[in-house]
């Protein structure tokens, strides 16, 4: 079962903690989005392996943009 990590808010990705292939557990911090001059950590929605990273550090995201897929 694959689950997508969508951007919960618009902003700029300033840090991605994981690489494709990394295993994550639910509630692990996966990346940080900066919005309104505040860093918002984004947490993994489920256990699994990072299958694909669609965006990289420095990218601007809109709400609901696909950032990564966890499998």
């Amino acid at each position: 079962m694959a689950e997508d990590i969508l951007a919960p808010l618009a902003g700029k990705i300033i840090k991605i903690h994981v690489a494709p292939g990394a295993t994550v557990e639910e509630d692990d911090e996966v990346l940080i989005i900066e919005a309104m001059k505040m860093e918002t950590p984004i947490f993994a929605p489920c256990d699994g392996t990072i299958k694909a990273l669609k965006l990289k550090e420095g990218d601007e995201v809109e709400e609901d943009d696909l950032i990564a897929v966890i499998e």
């Binding site: 919960p8 808010l9 618009a10 509630d27 919005a35 309104m36 918002t40 950590p41 984004i42 947490f43």
Partner: peptide, 8 residues
């Protein structure tokens, strides 16, 4: 709740 993103 870690996954509650209220900012916007």
């Amino acid at each position: 709740d870690k996954k509650n993103y209220l900012l916007m």
